[in-house]
Simulated assay, not measured.
Amino acid sequence: MRILVLYAHPVETSFNAALHTMIVERLKAKGHEVDDCDLYAEDFDPRLTRAERMAYHDVPDNIEPVRSYVERLRKAEGLVLCFPVWNYGYPAILKGFFDRVFLPGVSFRLIEGKVKPTLDNIRKVVAVTSYGGSRLRAFLVGDPPRKLIHRLLRASVKRGASVSYLANYSMNLSTPQSRDRFMAKVAHKMDTF
């Protein structure tokens, strides 16, 4: 399976960096073709420009500024996201990726004012993330990243696609043992992708 791994963390010594490395290694070891998209290493610009917003609905011209990323997304059969949750949301670089790449004509079409998903090529989605705070704190604020993956992203990919959300909460209180347990959980998910 062709899998696009979207990774969003600026620190190469972080827990998320270790997760990212393990994800890519495990997927490759299982024979998957991995397109490893490290948004920071690729210096992805998350800012939607005025010109891009003005041309947002001009399909297919709207993809020109991000054509290479659109092509990578369209080639993928699976999608793995690896990111930290900051301020109960995505890192800005990942949010910007969704704003600039998940465009009309790419992730959806507007037909008589109604949104129709178009990423039928993606049959499986796994999000791997970490939170500084507890699951309860995330729940109390609505856990926006979890909802965005399970509701919005699920609605953009192939109908019936498998969507999983693996979260390591309470990183501020984590131990080597709790991190190892989460790494093992993620490794198992990648091994069975």
Rank of each mutant, 00 (worst) to 15 (best):
A8G: 07
V11S: 11
S14G: 02
S14F: 05
A18I: 05
V24Q: 03
E25Y: 02
L27W: 03
L27V: 07
A29Q: 15
G31P: 00
V34I: 11
V34W: 07
D35N: 11
D36L: 04
C37V: 14
C37Y: 14
C37T: 15
D38F: 05
D38N: 15
Y40E: 04
Y40C: 04
Y40M: 02
Y40L: 04
A41H: 10
T49L: 04
E52P: 00
R53S: 13
M54G: 00
Y56L: 12
H57I: 08
V59K: 04
Y69E: 13
R72Q: 13
A76T: 09
E77S: 09
C82Q: 15
P84L: 11
V85W: 03
N87C: 08
Y88A: 05
Y88S: 06
A92F: 10
L94R: 01
F97E: 10
R100E: 12
R100C: 09
F102M: 11
F102G: 01
V106H: 03
S107I: 03
I111N: 07
E112V: 01
G113E: 07
V115G: 00
T118K: 02
N121R: 05
N121E: 13
R123P: 01
K124W: 10
K124N: 12
A127L: 03
S130E: 12
S130N: 09
G133V: 14
S134H: 09
A138S: 14
L148I: 04
L148F: 02
R151Y: 10
R151A: 06
R151I: 08
L153M: 13
R159D: 14
A161R: 01
A161M: 01
A161G: 06
S164M: 05
S164V: 00
Y165Q: 00
Y165A: 05
S170A: 15
S170Y: 06
S170N: 13
N172P: 00
L173E: 15
T175C: 09
S178Y: 03
S178A: 11
V186E: 03
V186M: 00
A187Y: 01
H188R: 15
